[in-house]
Each structure stands twice: as C-alpha cells, then as structure tokens.
C-alpha cells in the first residue's frame, strides 16, 4: 500500500469533511437531519462551473462567490421548506421527509438548468504534477488540503470569537436557553443552514475538478453523512476526523478489495457504524438532542 493512496484518500476525505461539517452543524442547531444537504454540493459544483466559465474569475475568487451564493440558497431553502414544518412542532419524520423531497427538487432542478451531461472544469485547474518523496502528487491535491485546513480555522475562529458564532453555539446547545437569553433562534438556525450549504457548495467546487460537475453528484452527501456519524454526529471536530478517515479507508479498500464496489464499501461501513457504534468512534456525542 503506497503513501500516494493515502494522500488521495485524504484529499477526498477533505471533501467529505467539509460536507459532513454541514450535516453536523445543521443537525446541532435545528435537530433536523437534512437529507438534501448533499445537493448543496451539486449546486455548488454546477454554480462553480458557470461562474468560472461566464466570469472568467480566478479559481479562488470563484470559490468565494460560490460560498456566498450557496449560503444564500441554503437560507432560502430553509425558509421555504423546513421552517414552516419546524414551527408547527410536527413529528421529526415530517422534516426528514420534506428534506428527502428537497433532494428531488434540487437535483432535478439542477438537471433542468445545467442539463444531464457531466460538465468538466477547465483542465488548468487540475494543476501540475510533481514529485514529493518519490510520489507523484498533483498541486491541486495540495490546494484542496490547504483550502480545507483554512476553512476549518476560519470556522473555529468564527464560532469561538464572533458574536454570531457564539449565538450559533448557544442555539446548538439549547434552543430554549438561547431563546430565553434573547437570541433570535429562527434567524440563527437559518444562518446555520446557510453556513452548512456554503461549506457544501465549496466542497462541490473543490470536488468537481477531480471528478466532474453534474446534477447527480449529490449522492456524495450520503457518504459524508457516514463521515459525520463516524466522528460523532453533531460534533464538529468529529465530522472532520470522520471525513478524513472515511476517505482513507475508502481509498485503501477500493485498491485492495474491489474498485467496482468502492461505493458499496463506504455504504457498508456506514451501516456497520449505525449498527455497532451509532455514537461514533469517539463516542462522546449522542446523536439525539435532549
């Protein structure tokens, strides 16, 4: 097993981590598992394609633009599809079903806008290949690692240092207490959806150059959900660790066991975790709000 496989796994793992963060964030804040979260990746990847093509902005700036656009879309979707259900105090399952419907709306909406064919990002983004320690690595892989790390740091600072971030953590800890202390809970939840979708969108833009952009790549969301649970659902650091771990396990598994069933391996791991260790590998966060 070569180190290159592990590096590859880490790179894909970064993508999983970014998406898993969104899952955990949204769950922590609102108690909803947003099945449609994977679609923010789809929309992000496709938006990125258009932004790059139409505006000709450099990759980094496009990333920022998609971050903002996806975030706005996330806020909008929360307002339209989830809030009306949440405020009614409907059973948990109703919100989940609504989010399942949202998958169809977003994925098929994307297909109508961008077509069904896979779209390839400009090849120049893929970066050049170079040798490190006797391995061939693309510079783009390093970019993914760097950007992910940067986003994590920014998120940490945001959550711990800014008023808004602190409010988000307060809502996640206890919706009731947050409301009592005068925090506008609905607004914070809506912002959390936005932030989650923004991370998803960025993940999409980062993912597209090593894969492609298409209306049906949202399935990656399910694997990322596996990552979120692996690390302990609702736990931010766990989501990141879970993502990286899943990326590596999947990369190793697909070269040593079967590449055709690469996805099946990831989903099999997901089922195993749900069955054996639903609280995640580190097991301090319980996947259910009090």
């Amino acid at each position: 097993m070569s180190l290159a496989i592990i590096i590859n796994g880490l790179v894909v793992g970064c993508i999983y981590s970014l998406i898993a963060l969104g899952f955990s964030m949204i769950f922590k804040a609102s108690g909803l598992t947003n099945f449609a979260h994977g679609e923010s990746v789809t929309i992000g990847a496709l938006l990125g394609f258009t932004v790059l093509k139409v505006t000709g902005l450099p990759f980094g700036l496009s990333l920022v633009l998609v971050f903002i656009l996806s975030g706005l879309l996330g806020i909008l979707i929360e307002k339209l599809a989830y809030r009306p259900i949440r405020v009614k105090n409907a059973p948990e399952i109703n919100g989940v079903i609504s989010s399942v419907g949202m998958i169809l709306i977003l994925a098929n909406g994307a297909m109508l806008v961008w077509g069904a064919e896979p779209l390839a990002y400009p090849a120049s983004i893929g970066g050049s290949l170079f040798q490190i320690l006797g391995m061939t690595v693309s510079s783009y892989s390093l970019w993914i690692l760097a950007i992910t790390a940067l986003l994590m740091v920014v998120l940490q600072v945001f959550l711990n240092r800014t008023m808004l971030g602190k409010s988000m953590r307060a809502v996640a800890d206890s919706m009731l207490l947050a409301r009592l202390t005068g925090i506008k809970v609905d607004r914070i939840i809506s912002l959390t959806f936005g932030l989650g979708a923004a991370f998803g969108g960025v993940a999409g833009v980062l993912f597209a150059p090593i894969y492609y952009a298409s209306f049906d790549i949202g399935v990656i969301g399910l694997k990322s959900f596996a990552a979120a649970i692996l690390g302990g659902y609702g736990n931010m650091a766990g989501a990141v660790t879970g993502g990286l771990l899943l990326g590596v396990v999947e990369a190793v598994g697909s070269t040593t066991i079967s590449s055709v069933y690469k996805d099946a391996i990831a989903y099999g791991i997901l089922i195993m975790i749900l069955l054996l260790k639903p609280s995640g590998l580190f097991g301090h966060e319980v996947g259910r709000r009090a």
Partner: peptide, 21 residues
Amino acid sequence: RTRGIYFAVATLAFGIIIHLV
C-alpha cells in the same frame, strides 16, 4: 436496532448497495 433517522440512512445505504449489485 437503529432508531429514527439512522434507520432511514441505513436502509437508504442498503438500497444503494443492492442496486450496485
């Protein structure tokens, strides 16, 4: 043995695996 949303996710994953088969 899994509850609520975890059951939904596990069955979704199960369905995808069978489809891959």
